Computed example of a mutant assay.
Amino acid sequence: MSILGNILWFICGGLLSGLSWIVAGCLWCISIIGIPIGLQCFKFAGLAFFPFGKEVVYGGGTISFLANIIWLIVSGIPMAVGNALVGLICCITIIGIPFGKQFFKIAKLSLMPFGAEVI
């Protein structure tokens, strides 16, 4: 069932969601200091392309916390707001609720991506 969900997701919004993570990763990789943050963005692009059947586990330490603060100020808030709005739009219909839940999962990840692992 997750394969069907991932296929529909990719066609109906996952492509744009994953591309936003790739664009953010490319922008972060412009500077040498931002390369670790950009690489983390590339890892989460895979989740944004195909989120069904995957879970996000949050953890981390001091370095993850500092990276999350920098990320939140520069890139996190616009990505989280965008994903949350699309999630709300998807939840208007009963059929769109599973897609809305995936957008909410990605919106939460957009706020604090560092120290998180995709399982």
Rank of each mutant, 00 (worst) to 15 (best):
Gly100Met: 01
Ile106Tyr: 03
Tyr58Lys: 14
Ser64Thr: 10
Phe49Ala: 06
Ala24Glu: 03
Ala107Arg: 05
Leu88Ser: 12
Glu117Cys: 10
Gly60Ala: 14
Gly59Tyr: 07
Ile30Glu: 05
Ala107Pro: 12
Gly59Trp: 06
Ala84Ser: 14
Phe42Asp: 01
Gln40Pro: 11
Ile33Trp: 04
Phe99Val: 11
Pro113Val: 04
Ile92Ser: 08
Leu85Phe: 10
Trp71Ala: 03
Val56Trp: 06
Ile106His: 05
Gly53Asn: 06
Lys101Phe: 15
Thr62Pro: 05
Cys29Ile: 02
Ile35Phe: 02
Ile70Gln: 03
Ala45Lys: 02
Ile94Ser: 08
Leu47Pro: 10
Lys108Glu: 09
Pro78Thr: 07
Ile106Gln: 05
Leu72Ser: 07
Pro51Thr: 00
Leu72Gly: 13
Ile92Arg: 05
Ile69Tyr: 03
Val56Gly: 08
Cys41Tyr: 01
Ile106Asp: 04
Leu39Val: 01
Thr93Asp: 05
Ile37His: 06
Phe42Gln: 00
Gly25Ser: 15
Tyr58His: 14
Lys43Gln: 13
Val56Leu: 11
Tyr58Thr: 14
Cys91Met: 10
Leu66Met: 13
Val86Glu: 13
Val86Ser: 13
Gly96Tyr: 04
Asn83Glu: 12
Ile37Thr: 07
Leu111Trp: 03
Gly76Ser: 09
Met112Glu: 04
Ala80Val: 07
Cys26Met: 13
Leu27Val: 00
Leu47Glu: 09
Gly76Pro: 03
Gly53Arg: 06
Ala84Phe: 14
Pro51Val: 02
Ser31Trp: 06
Trp71Phe: 08
